[in-house]
Amino acid sequence: MVETDTTAVRVAGLTKRFGSGEASVLALRGVDLEVRTGELLMLVGPSGCGKTTLISVLAGIMDKTDGALSVLGVDPSAMSVNDRTRWRGEHIGFVFQAFNLMPALTAAENVSIPLLIRNVPQTEALQRARAMLERVELADRADALPEQLSGGQQQRVAIARALVHEPQLVVCDEPTSSLDHETGRHVMEILHGMTRASRRTLIVVTHDARIFGFADRIARMDDGRVVAVEAGAANAVPASPTSAGQELERGRDPHLQVVPTT
């Protein structure tokens, strides 16, 4: 594999071991993967196959055990804890399954957090947060507390928070699993549209086959390895969510086309 300026993430032989001795668990068993800049890559696979561990290592919130790792041109595992934390604050955006919004803060205040972390003055941070909320169609809910928002609205706030500081890489952990079909699809449309427009790289861990249609590629994981990388529907013939759901019920992912890993 040759790393180019169009490569956002490149891992080779990546391993991650939890614990030590006989009780240790090898969660990643030599992952090889490349994610292109501006690409939307979905990580799929059964529970416990290492998806969340992989994005944790890629996002620099967990150390690798072994292997080659390059994220946005650096190896976050080689940095000190504080440097890595600052690097995350600068370059990575997060969207969590459980939203993780601060219950005591308004939507706008929640969105402003990544800017405050980067020492942007509060007034400016709130202005930019409100602008971002407008882009996720929540301008009128900027002063609402999370408990006053629906699940879909909360996830849109989380998306605005993940993007407000213009990170180059956004990692999403099951962003639609807490949402109903329509809401999940709407959330993905917003997320996809906003990242695609600014050529941000997006890695989405999901079990939700209904959103596979947004993926450029889909990496299938099993037992700590990427076992296949397949072209997603965004690179193929668009499919309707309904037909996708029917295909899934029949036992196969309708949007997947197997392509060789790079």
């Binding site: 504080n82 600052r86 995350r88 459980a98 601060m102 957090i113 972390i117």
Partner: peptide, 15 residues
């Protein structure tokens, strides 16, 4: 703790 974890993930240092 979960919120502190989120802040930590988003780039807030231990200090």
């Amino acid at each position: 703790l979960r919120h502190y974890g989120a802040l930590k993930a988003m780039g807030v240092t231990d200090g």
